[in-house]
Amino acid sequence: MKHCSIEVQSLKKKLGSNQAIDGISAVFAPGVLHGLIGPEGAGKTTLLRLLLGLLRPDEGSVQFISGGQVVDFGTVRPTIAYMPQQQSLYPDLSVSEHLDFFAALYEIPADLYREKRTELLHLTRLQPFQDRPAGQLSGGMYKKLGLMCSLLRSPEILLLDEPTNGVDPISRRELWTLLYRMREQGLLILVATAYMDEAERCGEVYLLNAGRILAQGEPKQLLEAEKVARFDELFLRKESDLGL
């Protein structure tokens, strides 16, 4: 199950009366840090949920491809880690209780878990806070704990929904450093974020609005091609082009 890519074909999803995803096609390759960039309500979360099978598409398809072969979702699913945007940890459980809980859900063997746990606690520098309840962690530490829980099972695909939202600049930088390390291990990483400045940190950017991809490409090339200095400018221009 190494190096799996995700292919999305003219995906559509309506939530209530809102066309949340309005025809998205893309190929997310492994070993790349993909950034879904867009404002609130652009459809980032819905897209991630569709990829995860938490929502069913109205039209179009999501396929996982490994070695040119379509892989059954049931086989891929255990290798996908997901970190929801919403606070979703248990405020009364401590850092180490969270790790124990998710290790058990993922059925990680005890020795592997011990190793993984030490490594992750070291990486995230949460070691001194092992016994602190999640409800009393700072925004950055909370997100790091969420990330740790999803990284416990050594995933192939990592879906992160606004991991840096509400996190101080230093912790944000740390989180990105963590993500780079993961990418080096060949993971397919998909990060949804509303911060335009984070676009430049990604290997591949997808500018999302109203359920559609406005622009996509390698960040620097994209900026040069569009002759803008920053992504928020690009976004505003694309949006007004669309309005015309």
């Binding site: 938490l54 979703s88 859900l105």
Partner: peptide, 13 residues
Amino acid sequence: ENGSMELLLSTPI
């Protein structure tokens, strides 16, 4: 309400 169901459903449980 806590949002943890989303996380639980994304695990193999």
